[in-house]
Design a protein around this nucleic acid. Structure first.
Lengths: 210, 210
DNA sequence: AATTAATTATGAACACTGTTCAATAAGTAT
DNA sequence: ATACTTATTGAACAGTGTTCATAATTAATT
């Protein structure tokens, strides 16, 4: 058999990504394979490799769509006007909730690494950067006197921390004898951290609220 | 060929684990395979499966040894007597430093998951628990009035947070335009969090220092 | 309309993977 | 010396991602 043109290039990409996405809603990525995907969408393995470059690149496209979904989910709770601390907590909770709801897809985003020679495309970096920009803006409102450098640093610390709790929560490695809901953990984390930041030793004055 | 008894059961385990460990000091686990390990230690793949149960179980033994090393590395900085806040920061820095020095081994610990039916043996859980116990004791010294529940919760939040920054640091996903050393990030995290915890709204009195 | 050129999907082949299992040799007990 | 148990194996199995010549379809050119 040969050239078919049943579907456009975009369509193949979409079919692939969306099928993998629904697969990941039930099974984890480790049990998935290029050949399964190929069979599922009715093309040969070779075709998919032609299309995406490699299986790894295919998964990267899946990750892109996951990050879009995540971004979307987090935009929901982010209403303008309320106090920034509460908004940050909202963001974090959305992050956690998304990870717990899309365990396999979410894990794939952070565990998938390309092989040596292929490096992360910038359309992927951009998606990650959106998170920081939002967070930084909120942090600025929390502590208006903070320098750009300080905001940058704190955004990373805060995101990293929430991410850490999320990773462990998703893997059930946070087994607490006293079972506190994970949501409350990120809340406690953020309130304590922000309050410590604003009243902190070598810090400037505080922003609205807190 | 058949039974050889060149090595005892323990020796085979040790040879395997230590060879994989040195492998991981340069290459990552994804490029490793049961067959490579088998060839390296001079046994057949089947023998290793008989021994460990599965390749996954083999890797679990490697993870155990990694956790032992980690535990050892963290014990170094943990000298009794100094103020608990500084000690917690030391712990966290050791954690980060270890992860950065043993990237591949460390990643394997947190990314390796057994298949459906095999569940994590308790000799693995115990190793993870050691961390918490240490941390909880230090936290108790920071805030002596804190309840057991509160200590438990805060130990998890704190460890999760440090873990998160570490994960991202190891994966170079913490790309900051302003490049703050990662060490300083965990320090800032902990100081702010602890100070926020002790002076916090619904909190008890504070402990020694801070 | 007929011919050529460019494109695209393919199946077969390749070198690998973890795992199973009958055959077999070595060690132990009778 | 015989029987039994145990450890190790190679071959086979079903699977993996990737390569590539082959072939078929579309597009461009005569």
């Amino acid at each position: 058999m040969a050239r078919r043109s049943d579907h456009s290039s975009q369509q193949i990409t979409d079919m692939t990504v969306s099928w993998v996405q629904t697969y990941l809603s039930e099974r984890c990525a480790e049990n998935l394979s290029l050949r399964q995907v190929a069979k599922a969408i009715g093309y040969s393995p070779g075709t998919l490799i032609n299309h995406f470059g490699s299986y790894g690149m295919l998964l990267l496209h899946v990750n892109a769509s996951t990050l879009d979904q995540l971004d979307n989910a987090m935009a929901q709770g982010n209403v303008i006007g309320r106090d920034p601390g509460a908004l940050i907590i909202n963001m974090a909770k959305s992050y956690l909730a998304f990870a717990e709801a899309h365990t396999h897809a979410w894990r794939l985003v952070f565990e998938h690494r390309l092989s040596e020679h292929e490096d992360i495309p910038e359309w992927q970096m951009k998606r990650i950067d959106r998170l920081f920009t939002q967070l930084k803006e909120l942090l600025k409102r929390v502590n208006q006197a903070a320098s750009e450098t300080e905001l940058e640093q704190n955004a990373r610390i805060l995101w990293g921390s929430v991410h850490g709790i999320t990773v462990l929560a998703v893997d059930d490695k946070l087994f607490s004898p006293v079972d506190t809901p994970n949501e409350q953990m990120v809340e406690t984390l953020i309130t304590h951290y922000l309050s410590g930041w604003c009243t902190g030793s070598s810090q400037k004055q505080q922003g609205e609220m807190l």
